[in-house]
Amino acid sequence: MLEARLEQSSVLKKVVDAIKDLVQDCNFDCNDSGIQLQAMDNSHVALVAMHLKTEGFALYRCDRNIALGINLVSLQKVLRAAQNEDVMTLKAEDSPDALSLVFENSENDRISEYDLKLMDIDQEHLGIPETEYGATVKMPSAEFQRICRDLSLLSESVAIEATKEGIKFSCTGDIGKGAVTLRQNPNVEKPELGTTIELQEPVALTFSLKYLVNFCKASGLSNTVTISLSNEVPLLIEYEMEHGYVRFYLAPKIGD
């Protein structure tokens, strides 16, 4: 059986908020490393991989691997009933047909109990190879969100070029073109406001801005975002949490 307690319901609420517009039905795989999820959007262009590690739970017990088939819209309806500061306890039997969610407020004078029906989701699981990326860029998540939003008003694609000078986002559309260049600037006082680039080799790839804007819904999970690029491979965008992460992979647009 599974019994997992989060001190703050906001952890799960924010994760579901971040991915619910990209994927609808997914398996939350519970095992001794914590709760993991991997799902692709309908067009198989983007993939989200999430991991809430065991250390992030006030209490975590999972006797055997359990796959919780969940519709994220339904889960979000139940999570709306949890206040951010409520303690949340998830419980499920082995091969469960429902997930029990209990929310307790900090004054300990309100306890809410919900059961969410589970689904049988037969989803192909993709093997994501360990990759040495040509360029790894760390920047403020708000900065990346602003760039994607601004450029998505001009075009549906963005060319991303990483060189030793910096990272350049450029696009061309019907009304004109635009480009944003961020130079390496490891802000020493406030590192989370800096932009750092590790470059193994220069890279240049084109991606759909619609997906990048969607991924940026996860900006609330972390002040910084790490963007990993290599020529001819999917882009990796990672939002690190204290005890876990949400990662997005996006296939590039090929040929010009």
Binding site: L126, S157, P234, A251, P252, I254, D256
Partner: peptide, 14 residues
Amino acid sequence: TSTQARLNDFFKPV
């Protein structure tokens, strides 16, 4: 014009 690749071109099912 560029064409949108799919992840199945890069990641194999396990």
